[in-house]
Design a protein around this nucleic acid. Structure first.
Lengths: 231, 231
DNA sequence: CTAACAAGCGTTTTGATAACGTTTAAGACT
DNA sequence: AGTCTTAAACGTTATCAAAACGCTTGTTAG
């Protein structure tokens, strides 16, 4: 080690949004803190970063521990750096966020670790500044959903257009026009229609689609800007 | 201290954009690194965060030291958290960015500290991952300039519409249509026209304007979204 | 065979903006 | 004094995208 300077405790906290397709509800993962101060209070999932550990690796480690998941959407979001934000000591927290599709398996994995999924409108009080983190994450979800293909991270590989539409309803907190929504989505030419129907929500059934991520990323490289801001 | 866990070195680095109105050029502040490894190489300005010091305070401290400025646009931008990003040791860097108006005084203050202002298209090679930081900052400047009132941070209190237009030309890297630009800017009703003219660039002179920041922030609170994406 | 209903498709209206032309103010030049 | 020059300021039209809304289709349940 070349540098000589006091060091800091650095934590990563992770705001995980999980969409439950069967209930069509957007949820956030919280867990009961095990260390003092505030042991037993609800908080986001998190961990200190270890010496020599990449920050992104620490984030993946935490997410894996509480959800069992690898290879899902996981990005840094914001740094909380006030020296007095945690009465237990000067801890810098780097908030991350993750988007996953929720199923019963994840719910079990969570419970095993003292964690629970809460619908976004039924969050309990959170410890420290974790309430602010949730608020920021909700804002970012809404704004980013308009310009990035985040919706597909919250749904299974195959989904119907009505399902996708109701997901965006949940994110934006209002009813979109299904006809304009469909038109906009299809106009991107990023969805592949399959020859299968899902009949879980209607007699007629709705065609399943897949999001062509490769095509999107190729276009994005060339400067393509997605715009999913529909009324 | 309640927690027992290994700590990390945490630095803040600051990408400072300075707009020189007289030369109508956008610049970035770089300085010659004083510590090994890579002493003498160009880098962004930065510092380690001290024990008990707020991150934002550390950022302000660095900016003040190299520019003499307080109370200017300064925000966190991105965390660089790879354990091996610095061969001198595991140092987490929290990139910040700042936007200021450049004048001769700031150039002198910079030189006193071994720092220099470089036009954005004439940046030298930077140390470590600081080149990535500049690239990210440039991207963010372009995208954020479309939805936030960043331009006014780079200009003096009073400016003319042609000056503002040429600033955005520099940011976007292309010539905007002056008539559409003016219309869009005025349509926000966030500019106050003064009874003074600036004649530095024409015989006729151009009316000076002020940006009504209070009005903008009031509107922004209520959900107003600025849109300065003009052709 | 018909009722019910979500899914899917289509048309009209509206409004924003890109593209471009014209007028104005003031110093420079004769 | 009158004309020229030039950036600044103002205005108009054509184009296109999206908001608003109506209609048809496919399937099952009764």
């Amino acid at each position: 080690m070349t540098y000589s300077h006091p060091k800091l405790l650095v934590a990563i906290d992770c705001l995980v949004f999980g969409y439950d397709l069967s209930e069509e509800s957007l949820n956030i993962l919280a867990f009961q803190r095990k260390v003092e101060p505030y042991a037993g209070d609800w908080s986001l999932i998190g961990s200190f970063i270890n010496e020599g550990e990449d920050m992104s690796q620490a984030a993946r480690r935490v997410l894996k521990q509480f959800t069992g998941l690898d290879d899902v959407f996981l990005e840094q979001l914001h740094v909380y750096g006030n020296a007095d934000r945690d009465p237990g000591g000067h801890v810098l927290s780097i908030l991350h966020w993750s988007l996953i599709k929720l199923d019963d398996l994840h719910k079990e994995t969570a419970e095993k670790h003292g964690a629970r999924w809460f619908p976004i409108d039924q969050m309990p009080e959170l410890v420290l500044d974790h309430g602010d983190m949730v608020q920021l994450g909700m804002q970012k979800l809404v704004t980013n959903a308009k310009t990035r293909p985040l919706g597909f991270e919250l749904l299974p590989e195959e989904f119907t257009l009505p399902q996708l539409k109701r997901l965006y309803d949940a994110i934006y907190g209002r009813q979109l026009d299904d006809r304009n929504f469909r038109k906009r989505m299809l106009s991107t030419e990023l969805l592949e229609k399959l020859d299968k129907k899902d009949k879980s929500t209607s007699k007629k059934g709705a065609f399943l689609h897949k999001f062509n991520k490769e095509k999107y990323e190729e276009l994005a490289e060339k400067g393509y800007l997605l715009d999913l801001d529909v009324k």
